Computed example of a mutant assay.
Amino acid sequence: MGNTVILDTLPGRRPALSKGWFVLLLTLTILAGCQVNTDTSGEPWETDAQPQPEQVPLVVKEATAPSEPALPEAEAKAYQNLWQKIADAQTIAVPSHSEVTYFLGLNRNNGLFPINAPAAAEPWLYDIISELEARDMPLELALLPLIESGYHPGVKGLGGAGLWQLSAQTGRNHHLRVNQSFDGRLDPIPATRAALDYLLYLYEMFNNDWLSAVAAYNMGEGKLKTAIERNRRKGKAEDFLALGLSRNQAPTLYKWLAALAVLRDPQTQSASFPPIANAPVLAREAVPNGVALSNIAQAMGMSAKELSRLNPAFRDGIVPFSGKYQINLPESRLPALNAALVNLRPSTPGKGGSYQVKSGDTLSGIAKRHGMRLDKLLSLNGLNMKSIIKPGQQLRLE
């Protein structure tokens, strides 16, 4: 058989191989078990490498810039409609709860919030959402004024006033001016900052729970703390939904959640929430002291009623004689106001036409607010120091 070598592989019988054949077979075995090296770098192979797991084929993609962190849908999308932006925020979950269901039932009869409230939000909604975004707070909080005031800034309730229905003391605690001539709670832009300051304070107080924060905003910190303490004594959970509070105890919270559910449903949203453009509507500008809003409106070529509607914080319709103040006005009127400011001069003290007495007014207070002497006010109106004035009464100021 010439040089052919026959290997008997039966058990118990091993051929005696020469050293040369042994080396040849060992070399062939190593080569058969090796993968083809495709490395063209010229680096030597590592002879002591450990066995590697099976490699997944790589898909080579065109190099791109590092990707940005994923944003919530409401932030990543360019929205045309502000209501849709709020609906997509998805920061607050609407729980399945009997009280929420109750208020959803009221919505079918337009009883959840005033029917004109969503449209009334147009002048203010862009600024409120901008403030929420700047603070990284839930956009859903922009629905609270819908429940509290129907988005009407001049509304006064039992102890509260303005879009956010802040009490006078809460307003002052958060740097709003509240006095006889100016009520900062009725000025939506600074009132929004004050309300959000207060909500953030409550959020931190109640273990970073927005439901508890909104409930406390409505029912008061003390009452919510009492409910939480009652659960604590019983060894129960202390989050808001575990407290078992009824719609009579926390109506705003349940209405707010129901309104959010309405907004997130495309069918009810289209029926209840007319679109509001994602663009600023109003501007704010400083104005001189002592000028009547009616004079400012006339100088800008707009109706006095419309300017007063945007600025209900000026209780007498006049910019107070001391302090710095800004007015809200349509952005389109800003150039006209800037041109008119040169000619807008403070009114002569007492030159304000007439004044309608409000609850809590005093003769001395009215005279002071209008920059006139008390004896002149009394003389103009045939009054004396013992005279009694009543709400609704008209007083001459000149």
Rank of each mutant, 00 (worst) to 15 (best):
L106M: 08
L141G: 10
L329Q: 08
L125R: 04
T64N: 02
G382C: 00
D265Q: 03
R247L: 11
V60A: 12
L337C: 06
Q393I: 02
L310N: 04
L260N: 05
D8I: 04
Q249T: 14
S246T: 15
A227W: 10
P69L: 10
N173M: 05
A32Y: 06
L31H: 01
S149L: 13
L253C: 11
L380S: 07
D88M: 09
K156C: 00
V60R: 12
Y102K: 10
V287Y: 12
S167C: 07
F273Q: 04
S130E: 15
G171F: 13
A283D: 15
A142C: 02
A216P: 15
G162S: 06
K368E: 14
S332F: 04
F240H: 11
R185I: 05
Q180K: 06
W21C: 03
I327S: 10
P123F: 06
L329R: 07
F321W: 14
I115P: 00
K225T: 12
S98D: 14
D209P: 10
A78I: 05
Q52Y: 00
V342K: 13
A74P: 01
P312N: 08
I115G: 04
D316P: 00
H97K: 01
A121Q: 03
I189S: 06
P66C: 05
L395R: 09
L380R: 10
P251R: 03
A259E: 11
A213M: 06
A120C: 00
L132W: 02
A237F: 01
I128S: 00
R396C: 00
P251E: 08
N248I: 01
Y198C: 02
S303C: 03
D127K: 11
A191L: 09
L141V: 10
I92T: 02
E140I: 10
V155N: 01
E131V: 08
F206H: 12
G301M: 09
G392K: 07
P153T: 08
G290H: 10
E398Y: 13
V59E: 14
D361S: 08
A250W: 00
G154E: 11
Y79M: 04
A279M: 05
G150R: 04
L263N: 03
L166I: 09
F113K: 01
D187G: 02
K223T: 11
N248A: 13
K324L: 07
E148G: 02
I6L: 15
S308V: 07
H370E: 01
L31Q: 08
R193F: 03
A121G: 01
Y217P: 08
N248Y: 14
A49M: 10
L383S: 09
D88G: 00
D183L: 02
E68R: 13
N384P: 02
L143E: 05
S181P: 00
A227M: 05
P346G: 15
L224P: 09
G350S: 05
L26V: 04
G235M: 09
I128F: 15
Q393W: 04
S379H: 03
N381F: 05
T362V: 01
M219I: 01
L139R: 08
L260C: 07
A194H: 08
N107F: 00
D316E: 03
L241R: 10
L31G: 12
Q394N: 05
Q50C: 01
L82W: 03
L377R: 07
M302G: 02
A76Q: 14
A191V: 09
P44K: 11
H97R: 01
S303E: 14
L139A: 08
